[in-house]
């Protein structure tokens, strides 16, 4: 029993990210509306960000900014006192890029709506088929 609690306490962050990631993938696969697919893609991205940031955590460590760092000399920082900065760097850029790609995704959705008058996948497929039939 105790080892189960220890297992849960050690891995709950991964479980959270897996649940979020699966919700995102399910929305991308199963939903027919393009906007809902885009929302699913964003949930997926959030899951990845959560995963990276949670791997950066260290017990009893502070944020990765050296205290009294300005103008110090001869004083060295210990790696155990600061959390891992690398995942934060990666996710910092990923968040802004995800906003920009969200803009592109919505732009494409707008173009699709202009072209086919619908955002539902099956209706778009129907109208593509109708157009192909009309050309013959």
């Amino acid at each position: 029993m105790n080892e189960w609690i220890a297992f849960l306490a050690g891995k709950f962050n991964y479980w959270g990210f897996i649940v979020l990631m699966m919700i995102g993938i399910y929305a991308i696969i199963a939903k027919k509306n393009l906007i809902k697919k885009i929302i699913g893609m964003n949930i997926f991205q959030t899951a990845i960000i959560l995963f990276y940031v949670s791997t950066a955590a260290k017990r009893d460590a502070g944020i990765p900014i050296i205290t009294h760092g300005h103008g110090m000399s001869g004083h060295s920082a210990r790696a155990v006192d600061y959390i891992n900065p690398l995942p934060h760097v990666l996710m910092l850029t990923a968040i802004v890029v995800s906003v920009a790609t969200l803009g592109v995704a919505l732009t494409l959705a707008v173009k699709v709506y202009r072209q086919y008058g619908s955002l539902e996948e099956d209706e778009i497929a129907d109208s593509i088929r109708a157009r192909a039939g009309g050309d013959q």
Partner: peptide, 10 residues
């Protein structure tokens, strides 16, 4: 584990 200071990423 969560918060492990010796984890591979750290």
């Amino acid at each position: 584990d969560f918060g492990d200071p010796l984890s591979p990423p750290a």
